[in-house]
């Protein structure tokens, strides 16, 4: 609360920043809760198959599709979901993804991508940060905002969480969320703030802001002091934070 405000001055009261931070984190956590169901499904498959003493094959992952479809057809904001396998994990396919995507008429169908490393320009998911970070650092990750024109064909975010079995990295469970969907949830929260506010990702790129001064996707350079910017962690492990600057 600004120092010049007195108790009793409720109408002009700045909203409780802790509450705002929680509300901004909520949609992110909700997407990860959906992904957790898919991750569990992958863990179950791996445990069952390897328990029978053989390696997992691509066909074993078929049971994940209905689970992924369930996350897409709910009232959530997900337009794509599934699992993406660590190269070399499956017995029969070097690289593989079991990924479902909503068509524009709202039905889930498989997302088909060219993932053959020998081809002209493969969809090299093994190089993408939403796959690399869970693999290399064992933690969940949100890639973007970016226009995934070779894949989901949307401007949005890719959420991913690592799946391990017996200490080995199996792959990620993940989901695509269009930025427009997330924005419609986040903006009303940001609108309550009396300052210029931008929710930024780990690269300090704008996810959503309550002012045109921060363009979606643009990197924000916030130096110390001028203008004074407060940085409030929103989802600390993802590196998402809220930048607050006094309005002019």
């Amino acid at each position: 609360m600004p120092a010049d405000r007195r108790p009793g001055d409720e109408h002009a009261e700045a909203p409780d920043i802790t509450a705002v931070a929680e509300e901004l984190a909520a949609p992110v956590e909700r997407v990860f809760a959906e992904i957790a169901v898919i991750a569990q499904s992958l863990t179950d498959v791996v445990t069952a198959v390897e328990g029978r003493g053989r390696r997992v094959r691509a066909a074993d992952l078929g049971v994940i599709s209905p689970v992924a479809d369930g996350t897409l057809t709910g009232d959530g904001a997900l337009v794509g979901a599934g699992v993406v396998m660590n190269p070399g994990y499956l017995e029969d396919e070097e690289r593989y993804l079991e990924w479902r995507q909503l068509t524009r008429d709202g039905r889930p169908k498989p997302l088909l991508l060219d993932i053959d490393p020998a081809s002209d320009d493969p969809y090299d998911y093994w190089e993408m940060e939403w796959f690399r970070v869970p693999r290399d650092e064992g933690r969940r990750m949100v890639g973007g905002p970016y226009f995934d024109y070779r894949g989901a064909d949307r401007f949005g975010l890719t959420f991913a969480t690592p799946v391990h079995s017996g200490g080995r990295f199996v792959g990620v469970a993940g989901a695509d969320v269009p930025l427009a969907e997330l924005e419609s949830e986040l903006l009303p929260v940001l609108r309550r703030l009396h300052q210029r506010a931008a929710l930024v990702n780990h690269e300090n790129r704008v996810v959503t802001a309550n002012t045109p001064h921060y363009a979606t996707g643009a990197r924000v350079h916030h130096g110390i002091g001028d203008p004074p910017t407060d940085v409030v962690p929103i989802v600390a492990d993802l590196g998402w934070s809220l930048l607050l600057t006094p309005a002019e």
Partner: peptide, 17 residues
């Protein structure tokens, strides 16, 4: 999802006109 391991349709190609 992949017919013969070879695959591929780039979805951007089939997005609405």
């Amino acid at each position: 999802m992949v017919d013969n391991g070879r695959v591929t349709a780039r979805t951007t190609v089939f997005s609405p006109l």
